[in-house]
Every structure is written in structure tokens, then in C-alpha cells.
Computed example of a mutant assay.
Amino acid sequence: MQLAFSMPHMTRLKATCQPWEAAVTGADQTRLAKWAEKLGYAMISVPEHHVIPKDHVELSGPHYFSAYPAMAYLAGATEAIRVNSCIAILPLQHPIVTAKALATMDWLSSGRVTITFAVGWLESEFDALGVPFHERGAMSEEYIQAILALWTQEAPAFEGKYVSFRDVVFEPKPFQKPHLPVWFGGDADAVLKRIARYASGWWPFLTKPEQIPDRIDFIRSQPDYNGDLTDIFYGFATTRVGEGHVVQDDPKARPGMTKQEIIDRLGWFKELGVTMSAVPIPMVQSIEDYFDYTQWVAEEIMPAVA
């Protein structure tokens, strides 16, 4: 079991954000990224929304990064830790631009990039960007095919309803071969079928922990399963966020759990098939307290679950 680093102030999600996080700056996050790398955390992930409608701000908060520039910045500020998204909204950006951004990032970081795509859920965000919400699944299917073609084909070509290209060259290719790891986030059958075809990782959000083994079996049972599923990410705080970012009460996922509670829950996750998780951000008083807490996790929790 690997542990990802829970970076404060990536969002102001009502269900998970602690009050002290709002004072954390970009400079603080840079220091924390270097700290996380020093302590041996496996990954830092960046959530993404481009705009939040006013009627969602109470639950979702207003504060989100664009995943690709934030990931690139964090990769450039570090030397070993992996960067990922959680998630990047695949249909909201042209796939050639997405493929180029991620290949550039992976090439410059010497292969430290994983990407978690999702189709998106916030219809009014799609409306603001002029993207047809009810076609997002079909768009995502074409987009991932186009991206993989650009990453892996010497003379990439693709013909679809939403994107087409031919007689083009695309370099640099990703540093990682055949391409950087692709994960998908989400829970619907369509998402899991897409994972079976194209991905090596799954990031559940609304799936209950005890349902994970059956859903892994569903992925692997697909007739076009690629055989590549190796990574399942399930964070502690996942069960505190419901559909539409509604707050859920889960005492077993609360911040500030004891050492043994954390170890036991991570052990249970591992039995369910989870390969990576993250400990919740605690109710501390300052960022300096968080430096101490994350060191405690690295020294007391990591060795017990490695």
C-alpha cells in the first residue's frame, strides 16, 4: 500500500476542507511538495474544475486549479514524486491539446506523470464552456482513443465525430512507454468499461469500499479487457463526499484518527484491492502543524502498511 500526499487548499470542499487550509498559499504548497517528496510519499494529485456555478459554491467551494499547469508546476518543483490529477475533465479540452500538455509534462519530468481522466458531472460548467453535457461520454470515448494514437503511433491518425486528424507528427512522445499511465475516475458501468479498454488505474468516488472487489471483477470480466489494471486509489475522505459534493458523515474516515485506526483501515483497503490511499488532512492549527503531522504519518504509518 502506497500513500499519496494530501495537499491542503487544493479545494475548499465543504465535506473535507479544514478551516486552516484557506490560509495556505502557493508558496506553502511548493514547500509541502518538496517535503512530501523528502518523506517518501508516492504522489500528489490535483483536482480540477474550470468554473463553479454560484449555486454549487456552498458545497463545492470556489477554489480549484486547472490540472495540467498545476501538475506541471509541482513536477518542476520536485525531482522524484509522481504527479496526477483527481480528476482532469476529459471532454472539456481538445484532445490534441491535452495529449501535448501531458506528453510535454511527462517528457520534462523524466516520466513522473499519471493522469486520471473523468467525464465530468457539473452540467452548468459544460454549459459555460459550450460543451454538450449529454454527449460527454461519447466525446470522452473518442478523446482517449485520439490521445493514445498521438502518444503511441509514429504517424498518428484518427477519424471520429468530435475529433479527426491525419498527416501530422506529434513529438515529444511521453517519456514512459508505451505511454504515461492512464486512470479513470468515476463509478458508472460505462466508466468501468472504459477502464477495461484503455486504463491501468481506477479512482472510485461514490463506490462504497466494500463494493470495490465486485467492481474490479466487473472491469476484468469485460470482453475487451486490456489486462492492464494494476492501480486502485481510494482515499480515506472519499466516503465523506456524496453525489454533488454533499457532505456525508463517516466516523471511520474522520480527520485525526489514531495510528491504529489508520493502519487498520488501510489494511482493510488493501484486502479489498486498493493499492494507494491518502490520510485525511487533520484539524490542526497551522501549516507548520501539518508539516509535523505528515512527518508523523511518514514515520509511523508508512512502514506499517508498506
Rank of each mutant, 00 (worst) to 15 (best):
L229R: 10
A36P: 06
L102D: 03
G111N: 01
V191E: 00
Q145C: 11
E125R: 02
L122V: 12
F236G: 02
E210V: 11
F165I: 00
H49C: 04
A118S: 13
F117L: 11
P47R: 10
A149L: 08
A118H: 00
R136D: 06
Q2S: 10
D106S: 03
Y290E: 09
W121M: 07
A188F: 11
T98C: 00
L122D: 10
H134M: 07
L148E: 10
D55W: 12
A70Q: 13
Q145N: 12
E58T: 15
T30L: 09
W151F: 08
Y225F: 11
L206G: 00
W121A: 08
E21Q: 10
Q285E: 15
T294I: 09
E210H: 09
A138F: 10
G267I: 06
E171Y: 09
V297T: 05
K177G: 02
G40K: 03
L122Y: 13
A306G: 12
H245W: 15
Y198G: 08
E271G: 07
T98G: 02
I115A: 04
R240S: 10
S66C: 11
S45I: 01
G242I: 06
Y64D: 05
E159H: 14
M139F: 13
P53R: 07
V247N: 04
I262V: 14
F126W: 07
Q285L: 02
W202E: 06
A149F: 01
P19W: 13
T275I: 08
E159P: 00
Q222V: 02
N226W: 12
Q2R: 14
G201A: 10
I87N: 04
D264V: 03
E125S: 01
Y68G: 00
D249I: 13
K177D: 05
P174L: 02
V24C: 05
G130T: 05
P95H: 12
P303D: 06
D189H: 09
G186W: 10
H9E: 07
V169R: 11
A304N: 03
Y143M: 05
G267V: 07
Y41K: 03
R31L: 14
V284Q: 04
P255M: 04
R194T: 14
V97K: 15
A33G: 10
Y143E: 04
V57R: 11
L129W: 12
T114Q: 12
A146Y: 03
V83D: 00
I96W: 13
P178V: 13
T230F: 02
E37Y: 05
Q145P: 03
C17S: 15
E271D: 15
K259N: 06
V46Y: 02
A70L: 12
R166G: 08
H245G: 06
H179K: 04
S60I: 03
A23N: 13
I115M: 11
D289M: 07
T116W: 01
A253V: 01
A22E: 15
Q211T: 00
I219C: 08
M139L: 10
T239D: 09
Q145M: 09
S221L: 04
K54G: 09
L3I: 03
W202I: 05
G76I: 07
A138W: 04
I301M: 11
G256F: 03
K193D: 12
G201E: 10
A23E: 15
